[in-house]
Design a binder for these strands. Structure first.
Length: 875
DNA sequence: TCTTTCACG
DNA sequence: ACGTACGTGAAAGAT
């Protein structure tokens, strides 16, 4: 075995050094990061150069130490730690943890004492010890085995203090450094020493006498001088100062050297912290992704034809796809395992196997899968109707913690401590280098995924049961996955010709506006470039700057709106932006997504993505098709039923979020308003402005509506003031009046924040969780954000729970009624169906009925329905 | 790949 | 004093 090398770091001192050495850097969330960054670069360099086998970072604990018993003013008169540094300590601790380095602090002792104690102990065990600090005091610990590294010039250079180096520099032994401190004192620690004695005199006296004690024993032999008088007068103080400067090497520490083994960082955790802090350059430089750990050997078989006896009653099945676009991409292969035997079959062979097809379609055969929605869609394209899915790794992980990003099996598995599966990126490569590997590699990869799913199934189900989330997962998300898969595969028809005609007209309008803008600007430029536009508006035309982004002038719509009276160009730019958006995103973007074979678009609903429980929609996003402005709304004319004489039918919840709030807050006033079926914004205006219903004018209702939105979002006076374009004070008064009228809401908001602080998470009606680690942060921004999230997530998330439940009930009802109507889309509080005209009356009856009774609240749920020949008409 | 802008609930 | 409304996705330009 090689000799152990112990690295001991003085955490506080190095953080201070890094803080003062670097300019104040901030990341996107507004936290300062300079100390954390300096600390990290220092750590990286030392790890690389020294390759220690054991490590510890010591911190000072609390304000008082045993030294204060000796001298109450020890470290007195010190500047308070700057808050910009204080806020970084939690991150520095996180970093150290992610590096897998032990950290330690001990009540009543300083970091020095911990380091001294461990260094001494390690030396007796013949380890090499390196101490790293910014504080010269530590050099007293140098011995043949212990080297003390002191940072110089901020953090860029390191001075290696060996006994020989100290001898050369001062002519003293390391232990005499203590005596030197005793005589000369230390201003930064408020150690007095002997007044009038500085470094030079101290060194001279010590070279002659050896130590403070020896000096005073021989004090009578000194020639009478001012110096001698001072020494005599301050003898007590000199002894005390030496005592204060002495690092205590017998501290009652509770860590042993064996605990300090350093085995390298937890790469994922480290990347996470770096990401949080915004250390992009470090992430790029790191070769973490490339460095793959060894996986345990794994047995699997590649089969050409699946034999009936290989298919058990319960198996994990993984369908490997070329990429995430499961409606179009190539299906590569399937792996199945029962925990004992694992086999892989190419998708081509799988699709040919009747044995396998029948098993996959058999609802009595239990399947555990990684992403059942994707698998169901991909299998369906081969004519296989997947049934019997009883476990979905992606959904279970998402319910367990919605903050986890990524849908790769390796990522999900790793989070649960399972490492025997490779990341897709390391099997396929990334970017231009991405490619499907040779069959052996692919087969093993896919087999390992199936095996991971098999292994993790009991683990996750236990976790979900412990948190009382099993029901949410098993009876809501899992059946929903299958419904969503059908919706996606069904798709919605988009009329290409309608879009192309709109595109033509838009193009002509845009050309005209573009010329107007160039004329008004006096030159041609790229209107779509905020940078170029900023130069034209604010430099060339000299318009007032209202808001800045971190890269330059803001040219966002709310800013331009304020500039409208200043110059005619503004109106044209706003119109250009509006129409340009329609053209690029909705006309051109949507056209690209229409499938040639069926004239439909097939979105993918992300079911395991949002932190609140909502769905999201991609390729194309069908949850943000324009509706608010008429020009954009026309896009909806292109969305049509897939058969003649069919209709599109839409049903949306009215004020679902405020109803959820009424239910959860049990606010009497709010509950009553909904029970009486009042217009909630008018009612709010009545309460806030103290007027009767017929006195509420449109401005009052508008303000009340904004307040209601604010309440749902986690109110702040600033946010409301921005929205209504009023002062913060006025906004604060609105909020105050609102909360006075709805005291139950105020109580609920206060409680939810308290709960979040206590539990670390908030929950929805169906027990969906969102963890909020920042709710106790000392950083104002992070904490405030977490508080608003704590208020908003139960509302938004519960509304999501309700509509998901409604989708499941609706699916069952349509089947029960034997209807042809199909659910096509979900847009958060709205469901869109297509159906034969003959089913209209039935839909008008059952859709509101099912949706309104999805989950019983303390207030009624209300659903409005519309229908028409296009989505535009179904408004 | 990140930033800005803007579409939706 | 702090500097934001909550949750998303797509396109374009800048880097």
């Amino acid at each position: 075995m090689t000799k152990d090398k112990l690295l001991l770091l003085d955490g506080n001192s190095l953080a201070y050094r890094a803080f003062f050495a670097l300019p104040l850097l901030t990341n996107d969330s507004g936290i300062h990061t300079n100390a954390a960054y300096g600390f990290t670069t220092m750590l990286q360099r030392i790890l690389e150069e020294e390759k220690p086998t054991k490590m510890l970072v010591a911190f000072d604990a609390g304000k008082t130490t045993f030294r204060h018993d000796t001298f109450t003013e020890y470290k007195g008169g010190r500047q308070k730690t700057p808050p910009e540094l204080s806020e970084q300590f939690p991150y520095i601790r996180k970093l150290i943890d992610a590096y897998g380095i032990k950290r330690y602090e001990l009540e009543m002792y300083e970091a020095d004492d911990i380091i001294g104690t461990l260094a001494k102990e390690a030396a007796t065990q013949n380890m090499d010890v390196i101490i790293v600090s910014g504080d010269r005091d530590l050099t007293q610990l140098a011995t043949e085995q212990v080297t003390v590294y002191i940072t110089k010039k901020g953090i860029s250079e390191i001075e290696k203090n060996t006994p020989a180096f100290i001898e050369e520099k001062y002519g003293l032994t390391p232990l005499q450094i203590i005596d030197m401190k005793g005589l000369m004192g230390d201003a930064s620690d408020n150690i007095p020493g002997v007044p009038g004695v500085g470094e030079k005199t101290a060194v001279k006296l010590l070279k002659e006498h050896g130590s403070v004690e020896a000096l005073y024993e021989a004090i009578d032999t000194l020639k009478a001088s001012k110096m001698k008088e001072k020494l005599v007068a301050n003898e007590e103080q000199a002894h005390m100062s030496k005592k204060l400067a002495t690092i205590f090497t017998e501290a009652p520490i509770e860590v042993s050297l064996a605990d300090l083994a350093y085995n390298g960082p937890n790469e994922e955790e480290l990347i996470n912290v770096w990401q949080e802090l915004g250390f992009k350059s470090l992430i790029e430089k790191s070769d973490f992704v490339v460095e793959e750990e060894e996986r345990a050997p794994f047995a699997y078989e590649i089969v050409e034809d699946v034999k009936p006896e290989q298919l058990k009653d319960t198996m994990a099945v993984h369908v490997e796809l070329e990429d995430e676009h499961y409606h179009t991409c190539q299906q590569l292969g399937l792996a199945l395992t029962d925990g004992t035997d694992t086999f892989y079959v190419t998708f081509e062979n799988a699709a040919k196997s009747d044995t396998l097809r029948l098993w996959l379609e058999d609802a009595t055969k239990t399947k555990y899968m990684a992403d059942s929605k994707a698998s169901q869609a991909a299998l369906k394209r081969a004519g296989i109707k997947l049934a019997g899915v009883e476990f979905d790794l992606l959904l279970a992980s998402y319910i367990n913690n919605p903050a986890l990003s990524g849908d790769d099996v390796a990522t999900l598995a790793r989070d649960l401590g399972y490492r025997d599966v490779q990341a897709n990126e390391s099997v396929y490569g990334k970017g231009a280098k991405r490619a499907v590997p040779e069959q052996d590699v692919l087969a093993e990869h896919v087999s390992r995924k199936a095996f991971a799913v098999w292994t993790l199934q009991p683990k996750l189900e236990t976790l979900l049961r412990e948190n009382e989330q099993f029901d949410l997962y098993k009876n809501l998300e899992l059946p929903l996955a299958s419904i969503l898969s059908e919706m996606e595969s069904e798709g919605i028809t988009v009329n290409r010709a309608t879009l192309e005609k709109m595109g033509q007209e838009l193009g002509e309008k845009l050309t005209v506006i573009e010329q107007d803008i160039y004329a008004e600007a006096g030159e041609a430029f790229n209107i779509n470039s905020p940078k170029q536009l900023g130069v034209i508006l604010f430099d060339k035309l000299g318009l007032p700057v209202i808001k800045k982004t971190k890269t330059g002038y803001s040219t966002a719509a709310d800013v331009l709106e304020k500039l409208k009276p200043e110059h005619a160009i503004i109106e044209h730019i706003l119109l250009y932006r509006q129409l340009g958006k329609l053209q690029s995103t909705y006309i051109e973007g949507l056209l690209k997504e229409i499938h040639e074979d069926d004239g439909k678009v097939h979105t993918r609903f992300q079911q395991a993505l949002t932190s609140t429980g909502r769905l999201s929609s991609t390729d194309p996003n069908l949850q943000n098709i324009p509706v608010r402005l008429e020009e954009g709304r026309k896009i909806r004319q292109a969305f049509v039923p897939s058969h003649e004489n069919w209709i599109l039918f839409s049903a949306d919840y009215s004020q679902i979020e405020l109803r959820v709030l009424a239910h959860m807050s049990e606010d009497k006033n709010l509950v009553e308003a909904f029970r009486e079926g009042m217009d909630i914004h008018t009612r709010t205006a009545m309460d806030v402005f103290h007027v009767s219903a017929d006195e509420v004018d449109s401005d009052m209702r508008r303000a009340a509506k904004a307040v209601n939105f604010g309440i749902v979002y986690g109110i702040s006076d600033y946010g409301l003031s921005q929205n209504l374009d009023i002062t913060r004070k006025e906004a604060a008064i609105f909020i105050e009046k609102y909360l006075a009228s709805f005291p139950g809401v105020k109580g609920y908001m206060d409680n939810i924040i308290q709960d979040a602080k206590f539990n670390g998470f908030v929950t929805t009606i169906l027990n969906r969780r969102r963890y909020l680690p920042d709710i106790t942060s000392s950083n104002f921004n992070l904490r405030s954000f977490a508080e608003r999230t704590a208020m908003n997530t139960p509302i938004q998330g519960s509304a999501a729970d309700i509509i998901k439940k409604a989708m499941i009930d609706m699916d069952a009802r349509l089947k029960k009624e034997n209807m042809q109507a199909k659910l096509l889309l979900q847009v958060h509080d709205e469901l869109i169906f297509e159906a034969p005209q003959e089913e209209l009356a039935m839909l008008e009856k059952i859709v509101p009925e099912v949706m309104e009774n999805a989950i019983a609240l303390a207030v009624p749920l209300k659903v409005d329905v519309n229908y028409g020949a296009t989505w535009y008409e179904a408004k």
